[in-house]
Simulated scan of single mutants.
Amino acid sequence: MVMKYITRFFCFSGFILALAACGNLEKEITLDLPPYESKLVVECYLEAGQPYTALLTKSAAYFDPFTFESAEEFLQILENDAEVVIRHKGEEIKLQNDLNINPTTAKIFNYYSTELVPADYENDFELEITTKDGRHVTATTRLLPKVPIDSVVVEFDAKNDTLARTLVYFQDDPNTTDYYRRMIHVGSVLNDPEFYFQTGDDFVDDGTVVFGSAFDYAVGDTVINTIFHIDHDYYLFLESIEGAVDANGNPFAQPGVILSNLEGDENALGIFTGFSFDRVVTIIQK
């Protein structure tokens, strides 16, 4: 047994020494990359009772300098002067091209309508985009009903009773395949989320879902738990984005591919989806 561990040690050490010996084997090379063709990027989210909005931008090449440090850089990637139409039950809603921000969510959009999205969970919404240079994009989605949170339980750590976690309980319909996104904010939903993930419901046995957290919260903290009910397209989109981020800069990883429900001759990136959410604000108390 001792010899086995000694052998493993020397094999590992030899591997490290081999890597160190290659430290000077460096050579700069110049690659002639083909010119990058910018793609249309679409984000259009439907929420019952909220105005129709969409953000249309243009993708950039991997090595293009882009820092988001100035408004000018952001304005350069906006896709303006497109015709954006959403159809629902025979009605056509045309979105105006105007840069704006939602003060409640801090989300930026450059197309909008003052009409509100109806709470219709039975009929399709259809998106059609025609850019100023003739590119054409379509997509179809539906709204999903809210899945209410039953309760949020605060539980203090048995080893360190100054820190607590939250447990979120809600019910999953066993007769349907559902997808959820869970987010935790501290202080305000305008802050970056402390924690988030998305999942299907294939792990649920008895219909009750419990999402926990780490023991990260002190007495007086405001913890905001949100459960989004999302569709399969949005779930795949989010998973593919996270996969692409993880692969970025990793020479041993496969290049990330963004999964999208957009169709048309543009090969656009992005998502057109409807969702709903329930949210509970909890102030940590003993």
Rank of each mutant, 00 (worst) to 15 (best):
Y217G: 05
Y169C: 03
G200V: 02
D178G: 12
A119I: 02
F211K: 02
T166G: 12
Y111V: 12
Y180H: 07
E155N: 12
N191Y: 01
N191G: 06
T105N: 10
F215M: 00
N110M: 07
P103F: 05
Y121Q: 04
Y180W: 01
L143K: 04
K107I: 03
R142V: 10
P118M: 01
I184P: 09
T162F: 07
I149N: 04
D206L: 00
T176A: 14
P193V: 03
I149F: 02
N123A: 12
V219I: 13
N110T: 10
Y217V: 04
V223P: 02
I184W: 09
I108S: 06
F156S: 10
F211Y: 13
I129C: 01
I149H: 10
A106S: 14
F195M: 13
F156C: 08
V219S: 04
R181S: 14
T114L: 13
T166K: 00
H185V: 08
D216Y: 12
P193E: 04
Y169T: 06
V204M: 08
Y112H: 15
H185C: 12
I108G: 01
D172V: 15
L163H: 11
V223T: 03
S188C: 04
G134R: 05
K146S: 09
A158Y: 05
I129F: 04
L127M: 12
S113Q: 06
F109Y: 15
T176S: 14
F125E: 05
N191T: 00
V154K: 07
P148K: 12
N160W: 00
G212A: 03
D133L: 05
F195I: 04
N191H: 13
T166C: 12
V152L: 07
T166Y: 00
V137H: 07
G207L: 02
A139D: 02
T131C: 07
V152A: 09
D202K: 11
V209R: 14
S213G: 04
F197W: 10
T166W: 00
F125M: 07
N110E: 11
D178L: 04
L144H: 13
Y217C: 08
N102C: 13
L167Q: 14
A158R: 11
F109N: 04
Y179K: 12
T199Y: 06
F170Q: 03
Y169M: 05
R181E: 13
I108A: 04
V210I: 15
S213K: 00
E122G: 00
G200Q: 09
V209K: 11
A164S: 14
P193W: 03
V137Q: 03
Y196G: 09
Y196E: 14
S188N: 13
E194K: 13
D120P: 00
P145L: 07
